[in-house]
Write a protein that binds this DNA or RNA. Structure first.
Length: 375
RNA sequence: GGGGAGAUACCAAAGCGGUCAACUGGGGUAGACUGUAAAUCUAUUGGCGUAGCCUUCGUAGGUUCGAAUCCUGCUCUCCCCA
């Protein structure tokens, strides 16, 4: 399911391919987030053509509440429901346990929570989140975990970790006792937790590695901790996670975060940043980060990004995009999202080429510097 | 021609003797956003040497210890009737 085609000379970076029932994914890869069966504001055809997304995310919590698994099953799975034939990865709802923490209570059994939509009461367990993801038909399913907040007391992180591990065993049990609904093979990725504590992270990585799944994930990072802590934890964990399986860093991050993580052996990423921040006027370009709402772009008739990661990047000017965003026009959010996602996808594709050529590190160092510039 | 209402900061619109440099929206400016309860949220928006001072509420005067608020003249706008 995962093959490695190349490795960088000087770093832990590698270039590989993940094969799923809905197509293969070159790594390193960035996965656009499509929480509720849509990458917000973007047409599937634009994801396929202009952005060339290889895989997108869906979210168990959101899809379960709306439209509900009944409709998705009736449609023949999420791929058919949303007319997307490339791979899909679903998050288990573990992140919502964290982000909607006011509305939930954790027990050994699972997480009892109130719907943010209508206040109705539900429970997520390691078992039923596998069932829901089976109904969704995700190519890659995630184990149900607790994404701990930051900062986090050692005592709490340790207790939470044992809960996550306990849940992991049960999720794998259910995974092994059930079959895909739609014929296409599904994988289940376990998630390393342990907050910013090296020893807990080691314990968790050992546990996850011992499960022998087709890929592994690192969660609980980029929740507010300094980037240096995140990089350190990645190094600690990747020492232990199997080298011949893809490693997925959940919820990360900025373009610079991606390159730093790739150099430490990460293969997969997802993040709302290119879409959400794009909708709010933040553009990632080959020249640096810009806030398109700033006055200084008002009369800049040059392209959004001359390096042209997407068709919209050179077709439209900064002044036009600024006008759209300032005016609250939906097209502004759409163009910004398309450009940002294409920028992310081009960035990881370029990283892949550099890795195969064995020249990743030098390129990465220069890029990180450039990408962090604020225009 | 007759009668009535009103003129407040970039726009709209509160305020109707001191607690008003003036509520609130919009607009402007800047910031935040990392497994999406976010096309959202926050700050700021007369000037300056900024715990203070200066200039502002159509305009010219007046009353008062004190006026955006009360009185008078003027200018302009809107509405109704003819």
């Amino acid at each position: 399911m995962f093959t490695i085609e190349g490795r960088d000379r000087d770093t832990k970076a590698r270039a590989g391919t993940i094969i799923t029932g809905h197509g293969s994914i070159p790594t390193p890869i960035f996965m656009p987030v499509g929480t509720g069966g849509t990458v917000k504001g973007i047409l599937q055809s634009d994801l396929e053509d202009d952005i060339d997304a290889k895989i997108i995310l869906g979210n168990t919590y959101h899809l379960y509440l709306r439209p509900g698994t009944g409709i998705i099953r009736k449609a023949g799975g999420l791929h058919r429901f949303m007319s997307w034939n490339r791979p899909i990865l679903t998050d288990s709802g573990g992140y919502q346990v964290f982000s909607l923490s006011d509305n939930r209570k954790l027990t050994d059994e699972g997480a009892v929570f109130k719907s943010h939509i209508d206040g109705s009461k539900h429970i997520f367990t390691p078992e039923n989140t596998v069932d829901i993801q089976r109904a969704i038909g995700a190519d890659i399913m995630m184990a149900f975990d607790e994404c701990t907040p930051w900062p986090c007391e050692y005592k709490y992180a340790k207790k939470s970790l044992s809960l996550t591990h306990h849940w992991l065993d049960r999720a794998i049990g259910r995974f092994r006792n059930t079959e895909p609904f739609y014929g296409s093979e599904q994988f289940l990725f376990p998630i390393v937790q342990g907050s910013t504590f090296d020893d807990l992270r080691r314990i968790s990585a050992e546990k996850v590695a011992s499960c022998g799944m087709e890929g592994n994930a690192i969660g609980g990072l980029s929740v507010g901790e300094p980037a240096e802590d995140m990089y350190r934890i990645i190094e600690v964990v990747n020492e232990i996670l199997p080298d011949d399986k893809p490693r997925y860093l959940m919820g990360v991050g900025t373009p610079a975060n991606l390159l730093e993580a790739i150099s430490r052996g990460i293969d997969m990423f997802d993040c709302v940043m290119p879409t959400r921040n794009g909708r709010n006027g933040m553009l990632f370009t080959s020249e640096g980060v810009i806030n398109i709402r700033n006055q200084k772009w008002a009369d800049d008739l040059g392209p959004i990004d001359p390096s042209g990661p997407s068709e919209v990047s050179t077709r439209f000017s900064k002044a036009y995009l600024r006008h759209l965003v300032i005016s609250g026009e939906h097209l502004g959010a759409q163009i910004a999202s398309i450009h940002n996602l294409a920028f992310y996808l081009k960035l990881v594709a370029e990283a892949r080429r550099k890795i195969i050529e064995g020249e990743f590190e030098k390129w990465k160092t220069a890029m990180v510097k450039k990408l962090s510039e604020r225009l």
